[in-house]
Design a protein around this nucleic acid. Structure first.
Lengths: 199, 199
DNA sequence: GTAAAACTTTCAGGCACTGCAAACTTTTAT
DNA sequence: ATAAAAGTTTGCAGTGCCTGAAAGTTTTAC
């Protein structure tokens, strides 16, 4: 990787860092793209060379590329239940996020305080969601137009996001992986009342 | 209801109708608020007296008020599983939508063609979602900060939206209620593989 | 009929975001 | 080393969403 690409990477993370810091201090609505750009020492036009929207600078790049996730999903044995399978293929992403804990906690805090970002979080990777749905469909021998793959995709995604939110408000020793497992288990049990689980 | 309120209602639906028609014809990005307002014979500033954003004009008002839903949810016996309970309290909304089938199919078509609206659909009523989460929490004796109520809220919401999408692409004799029941049953079975259901 | 209340419009302006073309920087080829 | 090529940053002009304030219009209440 040449000098040019290193610089680009640097600028990109400088922009995200500035966006997160400023949004955390004042709320995203009271931070302009111009201010973020100035804090990262670039023009505001350059900001938009890196991110399509102001929100995107907060969200950063996807943790893992969708293609890898889908490939691994198809490699798993067919008799693994879909919830377990998705949990398995998400594991690398979980590790990456856990390793970057500080960054992610800040990010989640900002997201929580900004409803518009909450939406964005729900669609982060939604562009690629079709591929994910197709992978699930292939696993069970259905088509992407069927209900099951669509539902499995959006429900597992939702469970993951809830786990992220819980992690963000938890203590410093809590592991994201545990929250994700908790959410996924609840989904796998069909949202059975957890308080009567023991009967 | 006086003349004034009747007029307001009229203007509101004229705006939604114009927004839907134009967005369906050209795509939402190629329709300006000014055009929508002109089609409904009001100024564009008035548009924003009715809807906070352009997207909101497409989405229209929530079908049922959240308060009613939450109240009915708490009235149901505690031993009804949460998925069934939510399905029950959503039923009035389903009927209203089924009655307005034409409008909703158009709306769903527009939403499908506009990724940004897809997000909005996922947050429609998210402002009120806290109340819904609290109602679920109360049902099972947990707090809104616990995982279960948050997960149950977002998962049932997701299932409902998937059902809407399926309905929108289905034949003219298909009932929304059937798609919702299908989705909810899949959730209740923990996303078990539907192709091996019979074993 | 008149005054108050509610609603609409016009106006001025902020900010996100885009296309374009000019300037600049890094890389490549010679 | 140098010049061309390729890629990046920037300023500029412009569109469109959305907002606050003030002035104008319609509806309601008495």
């Amino acid at each position: 990787m040449g000098l040019r690409d290193r610089k680009k990477q640097q600028t990109r993370s400088a922009l995200t860092a500035a966006a997160l810091r400023l949004a955390d201090e004042r709320g995203l609505d009271h931070v302009t793209v111009e201010e973020i750009s100035a804090a990262a020492d670039v023009s505001s036009r350059t900001f938009f060379n890196y991110f399509a929207t102001k929100d995107d600078a907060i969200l950063g790049e996807p943790v893992i590329d969708n293609e890898t996730v889908c490939r691994r999903l198809l490699e798993l044995p067919r008799d693994v239940p879909i919830v377990d399978a998705v949990l398995t293929v998400f594991e690398p992403a979980i590790e990456v996020m856990q390793a970057d804990r500080e960054l992610w906690l800040l990010r989640m805090r900002v997201i929580k305080d900004n409803p518009s970002l909450l939406l964005a979080l729900f669609t982060q990777g939604a562009a690629k969601e079709q591929e994910f749905i197709a992978a699930i469909a292939a696993r069970v021998g259905l088509t992407p137009a069927d209900t099951f793959p669509q539902l499995a995709s959006v429900v597992t995604g939702s469970a993951f996001r809830i786990a992220m939110m819980r992690w963000a408000t938890a203590g410093p020793d809590d592991q994201l992986a545990d929250f994700v497992r908790e959410s996924f288990r609840m989904v796998a049990t069909g949202l059975a009342d957890p308080t009567t689980k023991g009967t």
